[in-house]
Amino acid sequence: MLADQSLVLKAPRYTFGYGKKMVEETVALKSNQQIGKNIWLMEFRSTLLASHAKPGQFLMVHLGERTKDPLLRRPFSIHGIQEGDKVMILYNVVGAGTSLLSSLKEHDIISVIGPLGNGFALPRPSERAILVGGGIGLAPLFFLAQVLQKDQRNTVTLFLGFSTSQEVVRIQQLEELGVNLSLTTEDGSLGFKGIVTDLLDQRLSNKGPIKSVIYACGPPQMLKKVAQKATTLSLRSYVSLEGYMACGLGICLGCAVKAAHGETKPYYYVCQDGPVFPSGMIDWEVL
C-alpha cells in the first residue's frame, strides 16, 4: 500500500519524450523453448505491446527477478506477433544474461519495456522486398515478413545465412507465410554452400525490372556487404544494427554508431535513431 495516494501516478500535464508509445510491463512467459543450436524462442502475451509494435522495433528485457548480476536489461528484437497478442523473441544464448533467460520456464515473470526504436520503413506498393538475414539476424525479419505477407502488397524474397544446419530455425513458419526463401550454410549442410551475401550477389546481379528494397539484419560484415550491394545497384536499403545498450531509452548515450561523412551528427544512437537505419546514414569503415 502506498502511504501517500497523492504520489500515485497522475497523468503528467505534458507529453514530450519522443511522442512514442512505450510501456513497462511485467509478463508471464507462455513458453520458452530451445529450437536450435543455442537458439531459443520465447513467447508471452501482451495486448499493449502487440498492438503498438512495428517490425524492426525492440524490447528491453529484464532477466527474471530484479537481479544485480547481470545488472542491465538486454535488448531483443520483436520476432513476431501471433494470435493477436502473443509476442515472440528469438534469441541466441551467448553469455550470462541470455543463459539466465534460457533457464526461465512457462509462468516465470519477466519485465519488458517497449516497443522501442524505429522500425523498418515499409516498401511502397509493388516494390519487391528483399530480406537478408545472417544467423540470429532472422529475428526482426520474421516480423517484417509477417506484416508484408499480411498486407499482400509486395513480393517478399528472403535470403537467410547460417553457419550450419543446426542453427537453421523457423523455416516451416516462414514457408507457411509464403515467402520466397533461399538458405545458405557456410558448411554446406543445408541449402547453398557459402555465405548469404554471395548468394545475394548471384541472384541480384542486376537491378532487374521490378524495383526492390533491401532489409538486412545480421553481423556487421554482412550488413556492410549488403549496403555496398545496394549502393552498386542504387537500391534503397535498411539495416538493423546492434549496439551496446545500457538503457534503450535514449538516456545513457551508450549505443553510439558513427554517422556517415556529411551527416549532421557525428554519432547516431541505435536505440533512438535506429535500430533500423537507411544504410547510407552509417559510416561502414568503422562499424
Binding site: M245, A246, C252, G254, C255, Y267
Partner: peptide, 30 residues
Amino acid sequence: KGLSLRPMPGNPPPRIAETPCGLLNAIGLA
C-alpha cells in the same frame, strides 16, 4: 546530462561494458 560550452560528440563505441553488479562507461561526456 553534463553540459559543456560547445556540443561534444563523445567517445567512439563501445562506450559501455557490464561488469559484475556494475556498469563501466566511457561516454566521453557527449
